[in-house]
Write a protein that binds this DNA or RNA. Structure first.
Lengths: 160, 160
DNA sequence: GTTCTTGCAAACCCTTTGCACGTCT
DNA sequence: AGACGTGCAAAGGGTTTGCAAGAAC
């Protein structure tokens, strides 16, 4: 049986911008060039990234934005569900475009450090069942699995 | 059907101390009064706590330990699996005695802020299945579910 | 013109580190 | 005696904030 890797979704930039503009207008926030530029650059990031990585990337592209604006705009993008923020153990916050990999989870090999993103429909169902036990409706979830190779020497991705 | 709340396990303090002492000896770390005292106080904490909360608690009890020692001992307790560390979204690290609530997960109501700890055997199985798809053996997992009340006004735990 | 946003730097919080002193073996 | 652990304070990294200048409405 094939392992269900999560696959990137094609991103419709205009759609994202419309979504963001609508959110800003609705919330009486201003539609500034910095905010839209940040959304564009977020969509160019390949997967997870930190606020600082985005800041550095934008400066290599010649964009003039401050870290403060990067942080505050990422927070706005999060409020309107265009980006998701992850708190992986011990590190700084990781952001990611929500449209890129809908509803995926993370598996970490603690032997080699490899991270796999996967998508299991059964998990979605189970999560919904669990929430229902408490008369709630699950909106989002985050599952981290920490695993090891049965025989370390044969781990095909081990470090070193 | 009854919602499966995770139930605290009775804690055998002597057993914990033996486990920790054995770990220290095996790793050639020293068995100091500070380290054992910290383990005792960890066992007195009701649930999740931050390193600083433990530090403050110990000082209310008259223990003289520094923050540095609290942090480093919590790390040792983590290495020998006596405590687990959680990284909840946006906040500081939360620690918890592993023996207290074995293998539980977390459900957050985003309307009222309530957090429920639950334990679903099916989830364990599913997690193991997922890891097997990648030829790995799951060791630990962490599932956070974010959910809402179907009708907010009726949320029995809503804030305000 | 008023209010919000930006950029910069400083502040902030949590955690780790360097060093002198104390303690365990 | 030697090596490790502790306590203190300072450093460190990531994120937020205060304020003056600039842009959106």
């Amino acid at each position: 049986m094939e392992a269900p890797e999560a696959k990137p979704t094609a991103v419709d930039m205009d759609e994202l911008k419309r979504h963001f503009a609508a959110f800003l207008q609705e919330q009486r926030y201003r539609n500034t060039s910095e905010r839209m530029r940040i959304l564009e650059r977020v969509a160019e990031m390949p997967g997870h990234f930190t606020a600082d990585e985005l800041y550095v990337y934008m400066h290599t592209k010649g964009d003039k934005v401050s870290r403060a604006t990067v942080y505050s705009t990422l927070e706005l993008l999060r409020q309107c569900d265009l980006v998701v923020r992850h708190s992986f153990d011990g590190g700084s916050m990781k952001y990611e475009l929500a449209a890129r990999l809908p509803n995926h989870d993370h598996l970490f090999c603690t032997d080699c450090g490899r991270m796999v993103e996967f998508c299991f429909p059964q998990l979605r169902e189970l999560v919904q069942q669990i929430a229902q036990q408490y008369s709630l409706r699950a909106v989002r979830h985050s599952l981290h699995i920490f695993a090891r190779c049965p025989r370390l020497a044969e781990c095909p991705h081990r470090l070193g």
